[in-house]
Simulated assay, not measured.
Amino acid sequence: MVATPIAATSRYIPPGTTHYYWVATIANYNSPSRSELNAGTDLTGEVMAVSGFATSSDQQDTPDLGSRFVPKIPGRITADDSSITMYASSNSSDARTLMPRDTAGYVVIFPEGDITGQKMDVFPVKVTGVPKSRDIENPANMVFQYAITKIPAENVTIP
């Protein structure tokens, strides 16, 4: 007997597909409403780079005297340090007015676009810093640094 192969994927690249929203308030971030998402701000067109926005689980050793083998169990769940680098505007009218330091809200990531029935990830966050780039050769930008404040809602169906 041969195992059933996994279904073929429809592959894509993030540019032109993935969207990032900043949403100030969501009543239940495990199931945001369409109106809450629409009230957010689409950051996509100003995003230069993204880092983090991933979770992982520690693994804990559980040794016993019955065996030399040391089994493991899942441990605490943690989130990576996360940031979004965005372009700065020459007139100061940019994301720094939307997300200053200490602002709480949600970064909503639509990996395959904001399409009803697809999946999204919702990260409850607090802005911890917004350092500005001082590079004299490249476009001016700011790195929005986020503390992820609760376990993210991952693979939520888009309403």
Rank of each mutant, 00 (worst) to 15 (best):
P124C: 12
Y106N: 01
I109A: 00
M99I: 14
G117S: 05
E112D: 02
N91F: 08
P100W: 11
D102E: 11
G113L: 04
K119T: 05
P74W: 07
G75T: 06
P63S: 12
S82L: 10
A95M: 13
G129R: 04
D102H: 10
K126T: 15
Q118I: 00
D64C: 05
Q60C: 00
R96K: 08
A95T: 06
V107E: 05
T78F: 13
R68K: 11
Q118N: 12
F123M: 04
S93I: 14
D61Q: 15
Q118G: 05
F123W: 15
F123E: 06
D94R: 07
V108M: 06
D81A: 15
D80H: 11
Q59N: 09
T97M: 13
P74F: 07
R96F: 03
A88E: 11
A88R: 14
S67G: 08
R76K: 14
G113C: 01
M86E: 03
I109T: 03
T128R: 13
D64S: 15
R76Q: 13
D114A: 07
S92K: 11
Y106G: 01
G113V: 00
T103N: 04
G129F: 04
L65S: 12
F69M: 09
P74C: 05
V70C: 06
V108L: 07
V122N: 02
G105D: 10
D61Y: 05
R76D: 12
P71E: 10
T103G: 02
F110P: 02
